[in-house]
Simulated assay, not measured.
Amino acid sequence: MAQLEPLYDKKYKCTMCEQPFATKKVRSRFVKVLSYDTDFAPLYAVESVNPNLYYVNVCPTCGFSFTDEFSLYFPPGADKVISDKICSQWVPHDFSAERTINEGINTFKLGAYCSTLKKEKHIVTAGLYIRAAWLYRGLANELQEMRFLKLALSQYTDSFSTGDYSGTHVSELRLMYLIAELSRRTGNSQDAVRFFSRVIEKQRQSVEPQIIQMAKDRWQEMREEQKVY
């Protein structure tokens, strides 16, 4: 009997050029998370078995890059913009095999660019940016990590103001916490305090006590840091 491998091929049809292709995904039974960082970045027991490396599907034919969160709908004119800016300039590249961290990062950049051109929800684009930041954190590249955390923060803030997170797996409480935590990490303590406070204010009606506690912990850490200075 053949031994089960962590990676398997999942079939997709590109929503842009309609060409079929297969790309690697990680079998859930092989995924072991040791811990989570304060912005929900997972630390995996085996880095090569990191589902985030395979989060973005890249069509090898036209270069359109998307995730399972992308909608099937293309706003009027979006397909032409994507065709002009991505497909017509695409140098055939196959991301369907096992990916390195750098290859994973490149797929997030492609995915975020496609998401922006397609006018996907801000919450979708934010998810791409923050995952790219997590991969840069794994490489200890703080400069690029901060760059992508700021991009994620901007999209999360727009998602909060437009309400486009509604109906997704990201709750209002989780979104407010993320805005606060990314503000803290990128040096905007005023917004961090404001949004941590808003999270804590909802503790009586919250069904996510863990996020309430995380907000209290970050709030306390910020108070301790202010005392030092």
Rank of each mutant, 00 (worst) to 15 (best):
Ser65Met: 03
Gln205Lys: 08
Phe160Lys: 08
Ser88Gly: 04
Asp68Gln: 12
Ala215Asp: 05
Phe66Cys: 04
Ile212Thr: 09
Val199Arg: 01
Arg198Gly: 01
Glu120Leu: 00
Ser83Arg: 15
Gly167Leu: 05
Met222Pro: 00
Arg131Cys: 12
Leu143Asp: 15
Asp39Gln: 09
Ser83Glu: 07
Ile86Lys: 02
Tyr165Val: 02
Met146Gly: 09
Leu151Glu: 06
Lys202Ile: 02
Cys62Lys: 00
Asp158Tyr: 09
Ala132His: 08
Leu4Ala: 10
Tyr113Glu: 14
Met214Asp: 13
Ser183Arg: 01
Lys80Gln: 10
Pro51Thr: 01
Met214Leu: 12
Cys87Ala: 13
Val58Asp: 01
Ala152Arg: 06
Leu72Pro: 03
Arg194Trp: 05
Ser35Gly: 07
Thr15Lys: 15
Ser206Val: 03
Trp219Ile: 09
Thr168Asp: 06
Ser88Phe: 04
Val58His: 10
Leu153Gln: 13
Ser88His: 10
Trp219Leu: 08
Val33Met: 11
Ser83Tyr: 00
Asn52Met: 11
Trp219Asn: 10
Phe74Leu: 02
Phe195Tyr: 14
Leu143Ile: 13
Cys87Pro: 03
Ala180Val: 01
Val81Leu: 14
Arg198Phe: 02
Asp94Trp: 03
Tyr36Glu: 08
Pro75Gln: 09
Ala133Gln: 00
Asp158His: 12
Glu208Val: 02
Ile123Tyr: 12
Ile130Arg: 10
Ala180Asn: 06
Ile212Gly: 01
Cys14Pro: 09
Tyr55Leu: 09
Lys25Phe: 12
Lys216Glu: 12
Ala97Val: 04
Val33Gln: 07
Leu4Ile: 13
Leu72Asp: 11
Gln205Ile: 13
Leu72Glu: 14
Lys216Phe: 05
Met214Lys: 12
Ser159Leu: 05
Ile212His: 03
Leu151Trp: 02
Leu173Asp: 11
Lys216Trp: 00
Tyr55Glu: 11
Lys85Phe: 07
Arg137His: 08
Gly63Thr: 07
Thr15Phe: 13
Asn106Arg: 14
Asn106Thr: 15
Leu182Asp: 03
Ser115Glu: 11
Cys14Arg: 07
Asp37Leu: 08
Leu173Ile: 15
Ala2Cys: 06
Ala132Phe: 08
Arg27Asp: 12
Ala180Asp: 01
Cys62Thr: 01
Ile123Gln: 07
Thr15Ile: 15
